[in-house]
Write a protein that binds this DNA or RNA. Structure first.
Lengths: 348, 348
DNA sequence: ATGATGAATGGTCTCGTGTCCATTACTTAA
DNA sequence: TTAAGTAATGGACACGAGACCATTCATCAT
């Protein structure tokens, strides 16, 4: 555990000089530089970033709070963001909130304990951590929200065009002839204030369609709830003819339930999901999906963080909007088709 | 950005007393305690863990190096390990090496720069980082390898019983009548010293089978290489009748290639893969897999770390072996069946 | 009344690095 | 020769918390 002091002693110079060999080597005589470098080599000295950052107040560290690292969307986001931040010599610390502001609060505390310079956050549902986030901002942390930006939040954000994607999904299904469409999750300001389910009813209205109240179910974005919900919806007297899964993980649960009920895609039912995960192209039929530009979103988020942290002059507002919205892409595969004729559907 | 000093000043006590309100409140008068707590509350004071750990040399931080965070096995491992470490108030810092010791070295450097107390490592292939790891151990870091332990490595490890699983896989396929079995990757001491492909030939020999040299291909554990390799193997004059994918990600590539060639599972070909990912049960036919006890392995790894870090008395050697090996579990689904009779197989 | 005991609190130093300013030696122009 | 300037180097301090020892004060037994 050698320090710069040890290096200095070995090289016969002062600690200040020794450190300059690392930070601005031009300032040193070639001879001195060589001596210090030899000492660094011999002791295998490597700076302790904690000590260095203690002074400035912030460490070269960025926190990333995702809902679930097991969800490939977030894993990809984490990977891409880490790559960009790493290039600027920042270290990413990842933690999970499981879509809950309640579980998020201790995670934020931990990150602040490490004095991260910024936090990239997929906000959990709830208000518990709102005040704390604002306090962090007041203390100079750059806070960025991604994937979901709560109503009224004024943090910069990077999100998918959820409303646009939902419109496109509904338009596509309606175009095929579907009118009884259900989303796997219903908006609820308290429990499930999620953007895709929030914008779904409006997307339906835009096409002159309405969502039967019995299709409404407030659920979290997990495989199991999607599984249960799909079973419930399909057991209804007038079941939907098309299902929209809000995440790739939900799609797994929905797919399982559909299989179990002995229904055929797309003959008996159409299924469309967000997230273009590899497996969606592998099942039979391959599933029609809305792909998110994950890499691009992560890059935008990382760059926003770097701009805020590095660039002193606030070019932020001119170069990139505070709230970046990315378009999704509908990839038509085989899981959607025109619905059965009404009379037949009723006999289900 | 308030410090313990600020708290002390506001409460009218010394910094030492103020801190005691957090660390051992019993030592304080009720009145003093209340005053300090009020000050902490008012200033929203939260300790800076960097400063605290500067003294002790190590931070309450553990590094985790995985091959790829997008691979669900590693994501699950990271999640479970983080949960256990969090309970003991450690923070996990995750980074990736993409199966390469070359890319791993800078990651280890970064982790050491943060003065992590321990590192849980899925070693990348190659020798580049070996020396560095040993130096880290000499400096007091606890190093643990998981998923793969290089030949001759004497770090504690937590791995799957790769050899046993391979034996079970081969035995199962052989029991169905297969003799021409290929693994999606061939052992190579330099490029691909991976345990599953390494133990595959021995598993074959144990059953009196041999691996034709033309089945040999040194590849990395990615979807694309598995895809290419599957195509190559199936284009052979005498193609294998059963394929073993070494990871869930490989299985995706293999499945794609099999589909593209218009082959039917399990009629034309049997497929078996490591990793029980959700999608493997969803495709048609559902894929027979070998499941890893990910949670248990992550827990074992995390506890080994905690024992090394916390427990001063070295109960480590008695309670748990230095090298923990976990059994896999064969889950038979629908992707394996007896092979076509030889005459038919030759006409492919 | 005195000394011992122990609880409550404070002072000081340390960790490893970065920043700022001081010092030295050496060069250049007047 | 001297003043000014510059390149190379060193010293002191700050950052925020923990560890350790010192101090104060009240209590109690002798």
């Amino acid at each position: 555990m050698s320090t710069i002091q040890d290096v200095a002693r070995l090289a016969g110079v002062s600690p200040t000089t020794a450190k300059r060999a690392l930070r601005d080597p031009d300032k040193l005589t070639a001879e001195t530089l060589a001596r210090v470098q030899a000492a660094i080599e011999e002791l295998h000295y490597e700076p302790d970033v904690r000590a260095g950052s203690l002074r400035g107040g912030q460490s070269r560290t960025v926190g990333l709070v995702v809902a679930s690292i097991v969800e490939p969307f977030f894993a990809q986001f984490a990977r891409a963001a880490a790559r960009h931040l790493k290039a600027a010599d920042y270290t990413l610390i990842v933690s999970e909130n499981e879509y809950s502001a309640h579980l998020e609060l201790p995670e934020l505390r931990r990150l602040y304990g490490q004095r991260v310079a910024a936090i990239m956050l997929r906000p959990g549902y709830g208000e518990e951590s709102r005040e704390y986030l604002e306090r962090l901002r007041d203390r100079g942390l750059f806070i960025l929200e991604f994937d979901y930006a709560p109503d009224g939040s004024d943090f910069p954000s990077v999100v998918l065009d959820h409303a646009g994607c939902m419109r496109e999904a509904v338009a596509y299904l309606h175009g095929l002839g579907h009118t009884r469409i259900a989303a796997l999750g219903t908006y609820d300001p308290e429990v499930h204030p999620e953007d895709r389910s929030r914008t779904f009813p409006q997307a339906m209205r835009d096409r002159g369609l309405n969502v039967p109240p019995e299709y409404g179910r407030v659920v979290l974005l997990t495989e199991d709830t999607a599984y249960d919900l799909t079973h419930e919806l399909l057991a209804l007297p007038t079941p939907p003819t098309a299902l929209i899964a809000l995440t790739g993980t939900q799609a797994i649960g929905a797919f399982r339930a559909i299989r179990e009920r002995g229904l055929c895609l797309p003959g008996d039912l159409s299924l469309l999901t967000f997230d273009n995960y590899p497996w969606t192209a592998l099942v039979d039929p391959p599933i029609t999906v809305i792909e998110q530009p994950v890499e691009a979103m992560a890059e935008a988020a990382a760059h926003a963080v770097l701009r805020a942290l590095e660039g002193g002059f606030d070019a932020s507002s001119t170069t990139t909007p505070q709230h970046a919205v990315f378009p999704g892409r509908l990839i038509v595969r085989g899981s959607c088709a025109p619905p059965r004729v009404p009379s037949l559907a009723l006999t289900l």
